[in-house]
Amino acid sequence: MSDFPYRSALIVGAGAGISASLTRRLRAENIPVVIAARNVDKLASLVDETGAVALPADAADASQIDALFSETEARIGAPEIVVYNASGRVRGPLAELDAAEVERAVAVSALGAFHVVQQAARRMTPAGRGAILLTGATAGVKGFALSAPFAMGKFALRGLAQSAARELMPNGIHVAHFVIDGGVRGSHPEASGAPDSLLDPDAIAQSYIDVLRQHRSAWTWELELRPWVEKF
């Protein structure tokens, strides 16, 4: 019998990088997994490979997140692990950014995370157990030029994680924020001659698993992961 402490998982904002690696690792622990994205067609090969359940959802739409959690419960039971990987990006000079596009980007990175954390808390608090993992970025601790909307969303995500950790951890719910401090292989062009300048998504997923296995007397609320060769 596995000693893994959780029995079901929902990953919101699933794709081919961190989410795919984490899905494989969870399925290796015989954990049923629901993976959610606006476009589930891109998840077909991962579903075929792992047996995960793919469901459509726009993270920024509260009603769709409500429906996603209800459907997840129907498919695999209430998720004991909830992972938020969705992000919104808009780049450009501040004076030239489209306000509607900025609003959408921040809604995906931050407001969507709130919707997901709220739904998770409503289910995990009565149970007195669960884990909520939020995928952040360098932009959540340092805003870069021409990338204000991404920084705005990721700063808000980090604040949500910190507040949720302080509120929910005493209720038995482990909340952790991961600062992915660098590019991830598969989502960024490989740097010629410098593959170690990018993070390996399988190694990131292993770190998520390690955090999920932590004893509650020494829970991590934030973990920074960065490549050992980097230029920033």
Rank of each mutant, 00 (worst) to 15 (best):
A120P: 03
L198A: 02
G159W: 09
A165C: 10
A165T: 11
L160T: 09
V106S: 06
T138C: 08
P189S: 02
A151R: 00
V117D: 03
H115Y: 02
S192W: 07
G182P: 02
S147G: 11
I180D: 00
V117I: 13
D202R: 01
G143T: 14
A203D: 13
A151K: 03
S197R: 02
G193K: 00
A205F: 00
H177S: 13
T138P: 01
Y208I: 10
I173D: 05
E222G: 05
G182H: 02
Q162G: 12
L212M: 14
G159D: 08
N171A: 15
H115S: 02
R166N: 13
R129L: 14
M152E: 09
S192E: 15
M124R: 05
A120W: 00
F114G: 04
P189C: 05
A164M: 05
A151E: 08
H174Y: 05
R123W: 04
G159K: 09
L225K: 00
G153I: 11
A148E: 08
Q118S: 15
D200M: 01
L198E: 06
D210I: 01
E167K: 07
D196M: 13
A139H: 03
R158N: 11
L199T: 01
A127I: 13
F144D: 14
P170N: 11
W219S: 11
P201T: 05
E222F: 01
S217H: 11
P126Q: 12
F144K: 13
G182A: 07
A145P: 09
I132R: 00
R158A: 13
A131F: 05
R158H: 09
D181I: 09
T138W: 07
S147I: 09
S147F: 02
G143C: 10
T220S: 14
G112A: 09
D196C: 08
G183I: 05
G193D: 06
H174A: 15
L146E: 13
Q162H: 10
V117K: 01
F178R: 02
Q214F: 07
G183M: 04
F144G: 12
V141C: 09
P201I: 10
R104D: 12
H174P: 07
